[in-house]
């Protein structure tokens, strides 16, 4: 079952899940790069001070230390914002984590333009940077139910994992009966005209877009691709095959992330479908007051998913108009 937008939200689903895990698993250690409360691991620090490691504002050292801890049987969960988790210590991730194939969990908060802090704080390339690395598993989540389950799901993955999480209020899209799978993408809605593949914070927009399209007589599948790598090729092929067009929606550059991954599969499977990629169109964004303004300005709104679907299907313009959803305090609505 899925909830309807605007979604209820919760705080610190990740932080609580990590504490739950650490109660049972003494091999779990937690590193923070001076963003402890922002990455929800103040909860871990309170309960397990001996397994909490302040690594300071020194991401390169933090990643290399985590790699060494993983070599000696610990499962390090490393926390900072997505930009600092991937750009600054990229070479350290390569040599100290990915190439040795060590079970380090790199948790990058505040994806894409969910940060109004401008290009220095907007992780628009983190999925691309992590996806290109051999051995790396890449998850992009925005639903609290999946976030809570992801901690448990990834702890025993043999190699490294990059976990991309929304900061702050996290929408509850799925109810407790939902099960996150690392192997299968989740077909949330089934439709015959257009297949919309979304990840992370773009899932709500994809679901809203599907409703708008349904109102205009267009039937859309919506696939929640929580695991971008390794990509569930079978589900991509199955869902794309029954559709006439494919749309990707990601809070990330359209280069190197989910859209690129889909394009690779479609081309390799000789599955000829028009593809439109919704995301940052090979551009840096900017600082602003509100993330919602950035989502609209940089083409990551529900309307952009509707437009991309409409265009990919070759329909005559104009595309149907997405209603503006208001999000009451404490709730989350797609832009």
């Amino acid at each position: 079952m899925i909830n309807q937008a605007p979604y209820p939200t919760v705080l610190k689903p990740y932080g609580r899940a990590l504490v739950e895990l650490a109660r049972r698993r003494e091999d779990v250690v937690c590193l923070s790069g001076d963003l402890t409360r922002q990455t929800e691991v103040d909860l871990f620090q309170e309960e397990f001070p001996d397994r909490f490691i302040h690594a300071a504002m020194a991401e390169a050292n933090m990643i290399s230390v985590a790699g060494a801890l993983a070599r000696r049987g610990f499962i390090p969960f490393v926390h900072t914002f997505g930009v600092f988790a991937t750009r600054r210590p990229f070479d350290q991730i390569v040599n100290c984590v990915a190439y040795p194939n060590l079970p380090v969990r790199i948790v990058g908060f505040m994806p894409g333009v969910s940060s109004p802090g401008g290009p220095s704080h907007q992780a628009i390339d983190d999925v691309a940077l992590m996806r290109v690395l051999p051995n790396m598993t890449v998850l992009d989540l925005a639903d609290a139910t999946e976030v809570a389950q992801a901690v448990e799901a990834i702890v025993d993955v043999a190699g490294p994992v990059y976990l991309r999480l929304k900061r702050g209020e996290t929408p509850v899209i799925f109810d407790d009966s939902h099960r996150l799978s690392l192997d299968r993408a989740h077909v949330v809605l089934e439709g015959d005209d257009v297949a919309i593949f979304a990840c992370g914070m773009m899932l709500p927009a994809a679901l809203s877009a599907a409703q708008v399209l349904a109102g205009a007589g267009v039937s859309a599948s919506v696939v929640n691709v929580a695991v971008i790598k390794p990509l569930d090729r079978a589900s991509v092929v199955a869902v794309a095959t029954r559709a006439r067009a494919v749309v990707s929606a990601e809070n990330h550059s359209i280069i190197g992330g989910l859209g690129s991954a889909l394009a690779e599969v479609l081309a390799e499977e000789a599955l000829a479908r028009p593809l439109r990629r919704v995301g940052l169109a090979d551009t840096f964004a900017q600082g602003a007051q509100n993330a919602s303004w950035l989502f609209t300005t940089y083409g990551l709104a529900t309307q952009d998913v509707v437009d991309a679907s409409w265009e990919a299907l070759g329909r005559d313009l104009p595309a149907p108009t997405a209603p503006t959803l208001t999000s009451p305090a404490g709730e989350y609505a797609p832009v």
């Binding site: 250690v29 001996d50 397994r51 490691i53 390169a60 050292n61 990643i63 290399s64 230390v65 985590a66 790699g67 060494a68 801890l69 070599r71 000696r72 049987g73 610990f74 070479d91 350290q92 390569v94 040599n95 100290c96 190439y99 040795p100």
Partner: peptide, 29 residues
């Protein structure tokens, strides 16, 4: 990683001391 004798991959200079500190921390823990 396939080298006998040494315990981590070197080569990209400046990383080894962090790895060594991580190993020392692991020994301490």
């Amino acid at each position: 990683e396939s080298s006998p004798v040494a315990d981590v991959t070197g080569g990209s200079l400046g990383q080894g001391l962090s790895s060594a500190a991580g190993l020392a921390l692991a020994a301490r823990l």
